[in-house]
Design a protein around this nucleic acid. Structure first.
Lengths: 148, 148
DNA sequence: GATATAAATGAAAAACACTTTCAATACGGA
DNA sequence: TCCGTATTGAAAGTGTTTTTCATTTATATC
């Protein structure tokens, strides 16, 4: 279950990609960190492993790693790209992957889950964000058998 | 429970802010829409209510409304600003509001919740994103009584 | 209703984030 | 070791968000 460098490196190669110095540096930077890093931070930290690491390469490599499943994008609170009215009371969203329509789900049944998270991690939980993606009823009809 | 214009407008004023024409226009634009809008979309739609609505004002007003709790930022899938290594298996994050450290929560117990969402909304659920914020154990010690 | 004043605005410019293009480089199979 | 191709960094391009500042507008007070 430990995620070590060699495992990740092998995963890259298994998918048919080259294990280059920039990619090694990016992997190391991510492995070193206990928190998500912005592309710029990854470049900075990665440069301790490979001095010439370029930002463009960081973007490309992150995209590649996310595709493969090695890395994942973490939505930070700032720089969001959409706004909606906040419905009184606590709600979550379901976003349609196809038409980008949003349906709000009223009611929040995560209490027990959050309590167990607090227990397990020692955090004081102050908030949460849940976003669910899927295909809305309308798009299901309009795209009856398209796959991707 | 209905969110109407007058309620929102009053909320703005109650917080000590002026109810200007640009702000009215932005409120109307958001009220009209069933999905989250980007700042540019809000400007465009808002201009049907106030022709001179500027994009800068949209940004400022959204920030204000989010502070007050009238609007909320919706994280869209694209343009994320952080990356972390993906732990094998499905995990969620707890992000510390203070040090921005991230702890991964192994295991996902949302199955039943998601099933009920699918039922209620008619969506085919394809994925979900849960992010929990709080204060990590370390920061709780280092900030014993600081508030806000 | 008129006035004063502080908040709010829009335009312009700056800062920033991300993508595309392309010639040069380096990985890894032969 | 050599070769073909994937990968790279620099530069330029594009779009988004923030800052600055002079002007305008909402509202409390007269």
């Amino acid at each position: 279950m430990t995620t070590d460098f060699d495992t990740l490196a092998q995963q890259l190669r298994d998918e048919g990609h080259k294990l280059t110095q920039p990619r090694r540096a990016i992997l190391h930077a991510l492995l070193d960190s206990s928190k998500p890093l912005s592309p710029a931070e990854i470049q900075e930290r990665g440069q301790t492993y490979y001095a010439d690491l370029g930002l463009v390469t960081v973007y490309r490599t992150l995209e590649l790693m996310a595709d493969i499943g090695i890395a994942r994008a973490v939505h930070l609170a700032d720089h969001c790209h959409g706004y909606a009215l906040a419905t009184p009371g606590h709600t979550h969203h379901v976003v349609c992957k196809h038409c980008h329509g949003v349906t709000e789900i009223v009611g929040c049944e995560l209490g027990a889950f959050l309590a167990s998270v607090a227990d397990r991690t020692g955090y004081t939980i102050t908030g949460h964000w849940l976003e669910i993606s899927g295909i809305c009823p309308t798009c299901q009809q309009n795209l009856p058998e398209s796959k991707h």
